[in-house]
Design a binder for these strands. Structure first.
Lengths: 352, 352
DNA sequence: GCCATATCCTTAATCGTTATCATAAATATA
DNA sequence: TATATTTATGATAACGATTAAGGATATGGC
């Protein structure tokens, strides 16, 4: 590997001059020297040593991306197509902007912090991080942070939330279920710390519109991990007789549960209706096609990276809590029940 | 951020001593000093600066992972669940072993090479790389490389292929189709450079066993990219009338095509049978459940990382071309046709 | 009391880059 | 002509860690 010093020696000039040419500070260098240096750069296809650059400049050009990890064959976090597509979009945008991406899927927050500090990562994107963990990271790591699918208090500095109209999405979905006559609806969440909390608020608001008071026993939390997940599904199977609809906080869980349930003889949507959240590819492929809330993971990933880079470059971000639009996508997984009229008009029009 | 020098100054000792304690070379340091240093390390939660370490040691502890990129909403490479699960396994193993992962999904090989060189990446895992690109990388990058789902000539140095029994898998799958009476089988590949080539060989061998000569017009290549993909599917739809079975080189494509085709009124498997490769989660969830070739992406990812780290540490790798086992998984996407007996026994027994 | 040998620790160089400041030459200004 | 200003370039010191080589001090043997 050729270095700046090698080239400086070859041309009989100083490293400073070579460095200036590389960084386009050509106003300080004579045209003749610029040409000579550039010729050499091409000839040897010079590639800078980023460890040295990073050490000297105190910025690494690395963006760290963290996802809460899940372990096991089919419960690897990457198996959730929403996360994997989002991650792909983030990676592409980071690269396009001349940065590098390091990724962590660990549950061990101390390890994450050490990794981030050891590389002096310029900025962090945290997907679905728990509140306590976020606070821990913030206390040690001072560079900009962008949150996706989390919920954090406003008084923490130097972070931006690239979120979704979660409340609205859940509100409209619940309304849709109510309009189709469902009254016994289970709300299935991953945990109550992140977006699922906001979605539950929307859910409650829709119920309230129909004069129904949300009952905490209808709020079901799915357990993670391979064995826990199996047990969780079994339990949900037995509870399902109490409901006419399962409203899931992700397509991933909706699809898994639909498959598990129909293998056990439950007909969907005749016996039990299902809804999801995210609108991933599978949801339009499975039968019945899943009624869900659409979001655009590509746009979201790009916006997250764009915002983070702006923050790294010291720009002021006016909106610290972006809410990207969502859209109800009505397909075939929700049955019409009885002759409930509900609050009026059927809202299906114009959606596919 | 506290540095080794800071701590050395605080204790009135040299940086070397601090460094020795950190690296467990305690035989050279008195117990008293060790204790004093360790107390300080804890107190300030010292985290080493990896740029400095990397610069000085000439090894970065970074493993680069590259996947050929695909662009677009649903054709992002990460949307293929096989890749995303494999990637998750690779990341987890890299982290577990104390390394760091950098990921590239670019098609631009020159950019990949520059990224790898600029960080002085210790080793590289290349997923599904084309042959020419591999040669280009090899010519500039001298550290160990592990290949997954590629096919490379033996005379290239310092690389290992962590492959699959691709030939066998395709052979058995084709045999299965033949035994169920299929004679007009289309073979759908992504390209003919990687594993799909090997699979095609297995396909041919099975056909030959039945006295059938493979016809190159039955070898269909799927075009990538959002618009190309749509056109490609449309074309395949019209060609499908010539076949009784579509044998796909990935579950991803099989699932997409099945959905596309059944939306257009083709009944599966009554009108057209389908088979896949990989056995991803969706394949057992969709209906009809997909007959496919099972592989274990977690084990494969772990083995790839393990092998690469062994190479980085200078170990000799006895087997430069590992072939992990595959297994035929017979589900419901292949119809039995007519009364062909074929070569004899039905091979379905004992598989689920 | 002297030397050999561990034991423990330090000095100083190195990695490749960037940044600061100084210097020399060329040009402009008075 | 003397002085100020611009332009082009170089010397040197960081940045934070590792490491080879070597210097003190303590211990033990005779």
């Amino acid at each position: 590997m050729i270095t700046i010093k090698d080239m400086a020696d070859m041309l009989g000039i100083s490293t400073t001059t070579v460095s200036n040419v590389i960084h386009g500070k050509t106003s300080e260098v004579s045209q003749k020297t610029v040409d000579r240096v550039e010729k050499l750069l091409k000839e040897y296809d010079y590639v800078p040593n980023n460890s040295a650059r990073s050490l000297s400049q105190k910025c690494s050009k690395i963006i760290g991306v963290s996802i809460k990890g899940r372990k096991g064959q089919y419960d690897n976090i990457m198996a959730d197509p929403f996360f994997s597509v989002l991650l792909g979009a983030i990676e592409a945008e980071i690269r396009r902007r001349g940065y590098f991406m390091m990724i962590y899927t660990s549950d061990d927050i101390q390890e994450l912090i050490r990794n981030v500090l050891t590389w002096n990562v310029d900025g962090l994107i945290l997907l679905g991080i728990l509140h306590d963990d976020f606070v821990k990271i913030r206390s040690r790591y001072k560079n900009p942070i962008v949150l996706i699918d989390s919920y954090a208090p406003r008084d923490i500095m130097n972070y931006v939330n690239v979120g979704l109209e979660d409340e609205k999405g859940a509100y409209e979905m619940t309304l849709h279920l109510l309009e189709r006559g469902h009254r016994r609806i289970a709300f299935l969440a991953d945990n109550m710390e992140g977006v699922d909390y906001t979605r539950y608020i929307g859910h409650q608001r829709a119920l309230a519109k129909y004069g129904i008071k949300a009952d905490s026993k209808d709020l079901l939390i799915i357990q993670r991990g391979v064995t826990e997940m199996e047990a969780s599904m079994e339990e949900l199977y037995y509870m399902s007789r109490n409901y006419t609809a399962f409203m899931c906080c992700s397509d991933y869980w909706a699809v898994l549960l639909m498959s598990y349930f129909s293998d056990r003889g439950i007909r969907i949507p005749e016996d039990l209706s299902f809804t999801g959240f995210d609108d991933v590819l599978i949801s339009r492929i499975i039968r019945p096609a899943l009624t869900t809330v659409h979001q655009d993971p590509i746009r979201r990933g790009e916006l997250a990276v764009d915002t983070l880079i702006k923050m790294i470059q010291g720009e002021e971000i006016p909106d610290w809590d972006v809410k990207l639009p969502v859209e109800l996508v009505i397909r075939d997984s929700v049955k019409r029940i009885g002759s409930y009229g509900g609050c009026g008009e059927d809202r299906d029009a114009g959606v596919k």
